[in-house]
Amino acid sequence: MIHFLAFLSYIAAFGLWIFLLVRGARGRWAPLPSGFTAFAAILHGAALVQFWRAYGELPLVGPGAALSSLAFVGGVALVAVLPMREVARVALTLLPFVILLQGVALALGIRPSPFPLDFQGAGFVLHVALAFLGYQGLALAFAAGVLYLIQHHELKGKRFGRFFQFIPPLAILERVGRIGLWLGFVSLTLALAVGWAWTVQNRGSLEMTDPKVLWAVMSWFVFLGILGARGGKGRSEYRSALAAVVGFAVVIGMYLALRVTEGGSGLFL
């Protein structure tokens, strides 16, 4: 029930961000979207705590529970940027992703996985948390990248309407994208390292054909590609933003493809 309320709160917060975009960011309504976003994230946190208390395990295993936790990391990322007035507007593009994740999680059912795990412990929790942080870092870069492309389009096209007024400056979006990418890349790298060490220690070897391993490794290479696109000589900020958007789409596409073809284990997100 609380999960569903959090889902509705995220939708309401997104609606308020849209309202602010249309109406102009001023007046007594201005703090409302930020407030609702924070409220939704707190509610979501409470729902996950309730899950943990009810089932005695962290909501990291099983598609529904894991997707909800991944959405929660996005909610927390948003709460972290809310005090920065202009940066907070990335909520406009990040919230739909959080809503989508939570919606899918609700549709799949947020409950523990019926399959017992081979091994758990601190290493497992660290691995999953770092991986989620990695994916949300990429999501943040994607959100900033989308806004960058829109603002760039408005500035080039000399359109000075609501989008131009509402979307943060290009330099700020570039910085947010860069932070998201590096944070995500470092987190995912650590997640892979921890996951590898933990699996080898407990199982003796790492099965590379496991869809979640495959996805994580492919995602890591996508990260590498995006960072390469940013760092190369003469690469414009525009191309960097484009690379983040395309890279994120590729990661999501890979996930969907793997879920369809290889998702039989039930443990894969």
Partner: peptide
């Protein structure tokens, strides 16, 4: 604060600054 009456600037010089800010931030 509640209406856009003071929104935006109404001189060419201020608009140039506004454009620069939308690109460079600070």
């Amino acid at each position: 604060s509640e209406t856009p009456i003071g929104e935006g600037t109404a001189s060419v010089a201020s608009v140039a600054v506004e454009l620069a800010r939308k690109i460079f931030g600070s």
